[in-house]
């Protein structure tokens, strides 16, 4: 029973991290119609910015996380408005441009910091224990921060005028533009929000796992998987799917083993997509 509860905690913890990544990914697709292959790169770079600020410059960890978020948001804003905006109408071009930007980021990290993992410890150590159940304080803090960020994104998307504007553009871009929504400001804003979330997640998660130039690859894969499962462009779908993926990954790995667990996760996602090709909460027809 203890391991069942401990596994649930792991699943929720994984789910909250996947949610933050998937929310950014799905926001970009929902509003801009762009599949952002550079998403993993913003995650890794956020981790390295936090590492640089915290370990090299000696800034407090929370400040480092904020700087990582802001710098990734700024980079995202610049990337969208200077590069992506020029090809936004061409779906294939956006795929190539985001993929290319990911390679540029990964190579830049490799050249600046090297291929080996730096030591980037989480400032809080210790583990909460209750019988056989355990939960590291670091994971608890990261879970809390992730949940707070999820609440913030929901508030922004569903309770503010900016959010309403973004949702309107996601629903029907020509009509939203005709009604006065400023795509020149809202597109880069949505992109910056998403990349800021990815950078913040990287800054929070890499100290409890590991920081290395390659860790964005699996992040991209899981974000894509989660968003497809939830329904491309659906914020609530991405959130539900992220927790489902996290829990399945945890329970399958614990009770079936590492290899079969990964297989089970992908098999279940495959079955769900066969039954509901549009994803859990996605619409049947969508524009890009």
């Amino acid at each position: 029973m203890d391991s069942f509860i401990a596994t649930g905690l792991i699943g929720i913890s994984l789910g909250s991290q996947y949610t933050l990544l998937a929310l950014g990914f799905t926001l970009i697709f929902g509003i801009l119609g762009v599949v952002n292959f550079a998403h993993g790169g913003f995650y890794v770079m956020g981790g390295y910015v936090a590492y640089y600020c915290n370990v090299i410059l000696g800034l407090p960890y929370p400040v480092a996380v904020m700087l990582a978020m802001l710098s990734m948001a700024a980079l995202g804003w610049l990337f969208e408005s200077l590069i992506l905006e020029r090809v936004i109408e061409d779906h294939q071009a956006t795929l190539m441009v985001t993929m290319g930007f990911y390679l540029v980021m990964a190579t830049a990290i490799l050249m600046i910091f090297g291929a080996e993992s730096p030591q980037f410890p989480f400032p809080v150590t210790g583990v909460w224990r209750l019988g056989g159940i355990y939960f590291p304080y670091a994971n608890m803090i990261v879970l809390g921060a992730c949940l707070a960020a999820i609440v913030f994104v929901y508030w922004l998307v569903y309770r503010t005028n900016i959010g309403r504007g973004m949702r309107a553009m996601s629903e029907d871009l020509p009509v939203a533009s005709a009604l006065g929504m400023r795509t020149k400001a809202l597109f880069p804003f949505a992109f910056a929000l998403a990349t800021g979330l990815a950078g913040g997640t990287g800054a929070l998660v890499t100290p409890i796992l590991a920081l290395a130039p390659h860790v964005g690859d699996s992040v991209l894969a899981f974000s894509f998987l989660t968003v497809i499962l939830g329904g491309l462009g659906s914020v609530t779908g991405a959130t539900c799917a992220a927790f489902i993926v996290g829990l399945i990954e945890a329970y399958a790995a614990v009770y079936l083993g590492g290899s079969k667990g990964a297989l089970t996760l992908f098999a279940l996602v495959l079955i769900i997509l066969v039954v509901r090709p549009q994803g859990l909460l996605g619409r049947e027809v969508r524009r890009s």
């Binding site: 401990a6 792991i10 913890s13 994984l14 699996s218 945890a250 790995a253 614990v254 590492g258 290899s259």
Partner: peptide, 20 residues
């Protein structure tokens, strides 16, 4: 013997399995 998929970044589930 416990095996994992190369590319795994969070080993918490496998760790739980080993602890069990």
């Amino acid at each position: 013997e416990e095996y994992y998929q190369r590319g795994t970044t969070n080993f918490a589930p496998i760790v739980t399995r080993i602890m069990s």
